[in-house]
Nucleic acid binder design. Structure first.
Lengths: 189, 189
DNA sequence: CCAGCAAGTCAACACACGTTGACAAATTTT
DNA sequence: AAAATTTGTCAACGTGTGTTGACTTGCTGG
């Protein structure tokens, strides 16, 4: 019985790496099984199928810690979203998960509610404005996506110290945003 | 011969709607053909296959107009990215295209270079800072994604007047960003 | 009118996918 | 040591996919 959970975890790890980074529809079970060095049939046996395997990568996905103040918030989110906080070595981040599967007709809703909602709630509790909280998350997602899916020049590689510095700078800027602030009209810039 | 291009364009329109909004791997040719009221075989005949059909939705996808100054930039990008500027009626936006297909192992690279690069170049020519240009695009993408894939509370529905107002506000804020600006350290907020 | 070609239809192919059940090997329990 | 249960292997199934080729229909030019 102990050996079984070892292979289950190898499957889980490989599934998370592949499904989160490339998207549910773009990865086959045979590829996951091969990567984990396990027979394909065991996936259906242990997790009840592809969907069950994906679900399993979400259940223990990540617990949103308490963020005492805005300063701690920045550091927490930075580590939480950009580093992959999983079993020591690097892997796809929560951002990648949302990005690759957020619009999937099958698993999208689940991904959203599994992560974004809890995050948003904590954010709103700490910050005072819903729009500001949303903006804060948008900046993080947009910036990380800018490097990952848009390959925007000027944005450093994810994981590099420069990236962390850039993103930290942006997050602090975003926190200074207020929905009701009078921003000069576009015509007047 | 005139009738052929009519069905070709019905196929193109349906393909753009489905492939852009739900992702390349999540839509089958039979679904596209059925939506266009056309036999499946004609897709391979006219476009050489699924990939060819997708390519065709990109080639004439969108021309990036000149943006004279930052004020025009805001309005142009707003219309370009959020409204779908295609044959009158609404459809998936360029943002959705990048979002749903940006991480696809097969078509991702093409999507990136087709749109993001040209945009970034024009942005850099107008603005003076690469990071600032990247941030500008990040804010747009992140904000739209916040509504679409994260369902962030506080962000209005895409297409609504509120959404436009919020996004315009953010874009103007983003333009005020400078990479070298001294932002208070997170610890000091 | 009718040959020639474009436009569309239909059925079938080969392939990859997720899934299942029968079987063998290994490990634990009695 | 024998029985029982767990763990892993293998081959096959059914289904949906993209693609192809042979076929029929409709139109147009000589």
């Amino acid at each position: 019985m102990n050996k079984a959970i070892a292979t289950q975890e190898r499957l889980l790890s490989e599934a998370r790496n592949l499904l989160w980074s490339r998207g549910y529809a773009n990865v086959s079970l045979r590829e996951i099984a091969q990567g984990a060095g396990v027979d394909v049939a065991l996936i259906s046996r242990y997790f009840g199928g592809k969907r069950g395997l994906f679900d399993a990568t979400l259940t223990d996905a990540f617990e949103i810690p308490d963020m005492a103040d805005e300063a701690a918030l920045v550091e927490t989110v930075l580590q939480l979203f950009c580093d992959a906080p999983r079993d020591g070595n690097a892997g796809p981040s929560v951002l990648q998960l949302i990005q690759t599967n957020g619009s999937d007709p099958e698993v999208g809703e689940q991904v959203r509610t599994a992560h974004a909602e809890g995050m948003q709630n904590k954010l709103e509790a700490l910050l005072d404005d819903t729009v500001r909280a949303a903006l804060f998350m948008s900046v993080i997602m947009g910036f990380a996506m800018g490097e990952k899916t848009l390959k925007l020049k000027g944005i450093a590689d994810v994981g590099s110290p420069e990236f962390e510095a850039q993103l930290r700078h942006l997050m602090v800027s975003a926190l200074a945003f207020r929905a009701d602030t009078n921003v000069p009209d576009a015509k007047q810039i």
